[in-house]
Amino acid sequence: MIQFFHVSKRYPGGQAALDDVTFHLPRGQFVFLTGASGAGKTTLLRMIFRDEVPNAGQILVNGRNVASIPPSKIPYLRRTIGVVFQDFRLIARKTVFENVAYLPRILGVDLPGQKKLAYLALRRVGLAHRLNAFPPELSGGEQQRVAIARALINEPDILIADEPTGNLDPDLSREILRLFLEVNLRGTTVILATHDRETIQRVGRRVLTLDHGRLTSDQELVGTDPPVLDPLAGAAEAPAPEIPGAAETPAEETGAEPSSAATPPEDAAP
């Protein structure tokens, strides 16, 4: 689904934002991307939807080399990827419906069709009743759920979230994380960037750690409190966590490319 092959990115006059990063995310995986501020998380995410291009290396998304996609074709890549940001990025003067229905509108879906799709997406995040509200009328958690609905409206293959809970309190963060897990259960590959180690420890899943642009760790964690965040389980039924720490797993098991095999496949689309 997503493959990085020795990807490096260096901004003019600055240090490397990414340095020789190689990994492979299979379809349907839920991955945390973590690291301190400035570690390169956002740069890495932006490269997946071709908002940035690497100086070196290759990035394949669904077998397609994203750096070689002509500018006129970039929108078609982005229609398969949903993106959620920390600051929600909602337009205050537009209703929730208008904010969510950007993509159907772009695709020429008629108004009833747009409303239906927006309603379905908002129902997934529990906000179908706020279709006509304006973002300033919503709480932070609700605004982020609207942003998630916007990202999900086209049933994307990949959902990218850059610090989606950074502006939210712990309860709302948990609510949002539950949504991402639910989306993942439906088959969408989810990449969630966060520097919140506590959440990662609780949830578990695969974790990629960046440090000064380098991928320093690729491990599979077992969550300490998975049922609390499991969308299929009620919080009240959550048993006490028994696994205290994280368990490293070999790269082969996580889908990471071993360094010897870290080359683009021959049949990679240009």
């Binding site: 006129s72 929108p75 982005r78 229609r79 993106v83 990025r89 337009i91 537009k94 950007y102 772009i106």
Partner: peptide, 16 residues
């Protein structure tokens, strides 16, 4: 510009 950024993000073409 904010709206333009969102439109680009969700896959709007430059023409659109």
């Amino acid at each position: 510009h904010e709206e333009i950024g969102i439109m680009r993000l969700v896959g709007a073409t430059e023409f659109f």
